[in-house]
Simulated assay, not measured.
Amino acid sequence: MLIINITILNSIRQLKEFSASTNKTGQVILRILAAVLGGYGLTYSTLAALAILLPWPRVDVVFFSALFPSLVWLGGILWAFAAPTAQRAWRDMLGATAFCSLLAMVVVWGR
Rank of each mutant, 00 (worst) to 15 (best):
L50A: 11
V28H: 14
E17M: 03
T7N: 10
T7A: 09
K24M: 05
A20W: 08
G41V: 09
V36I: 08
T22G: 15
I8C: 11
P57Y: 10
S45A: 00
A104V: 14
Q14Y: 12
L37D: 04
L15W: 14
W79G: 01
A89D: 03
A34R: 04
N23D: 02
Q87P: 02
W90E: 00
G110V: 08
G110K: 11
A51T: 00
S101I: 08
T25M: 07
W56Q: 04
I52H: 14
Y40C: 05
T7Y: 15
A96N: 07
C100Y: 15
R91C: 04
G95L: 06
L54Y: 15
S101G: 14
A66K: 06
L71M: 15
Q87I: 05
R31L: 01
K24N: 05
L42V: 05
V108L: 10
R111V: 01
L94M: 08
L15M: 10
A89L: 02
V36C: 02
Y44W: 12
A82E: 08
A96V: 07
S11Y: 15
L67K: 08
V59W: 14
N5H: 13
A34P: 03
L33N: 11
T97Y: 12
W109D: 10
L53C: 04
D92G: 04
I29V: 13
A98Q: 11
L30A: 06
L71N: 12
V107N: 13
P69W: 07
A104T: 12
I32T: 15
C100R: 08
M1D: 03
P55N: 01
L78Q: 13
D60E: 07
R13L: 07
A98R: 13
S45E: 00
S21Y: 13
N5S: 12
S21M: 08
G41C: 04
V61S: 11
T43E: 05
W56D: 04
L102M: 12
L102F: 15
A96G: 03
L78R: 13
L78C: 06
Y40M: 00
A51G: 02
A66R: 10
I8Y: 13
N23L: 02
A49N: 13
L47I: 08
T43D: 04
A83M: 05
A66C: 03
L33H: 13
R111W: 09
P69A: 05
P69T: 06
A89H: 09
F18R: 07
S70T: 09
A83R: 09
A66W: 10
T97I: 11
F64I: 00
A34E: 00
A83D: 06
L47E: 12
A98P: 07
M1G: 03
A96D: 06
A96E: 02
V107M: 07
W79C: 00
E17I: 01
L71P: 10
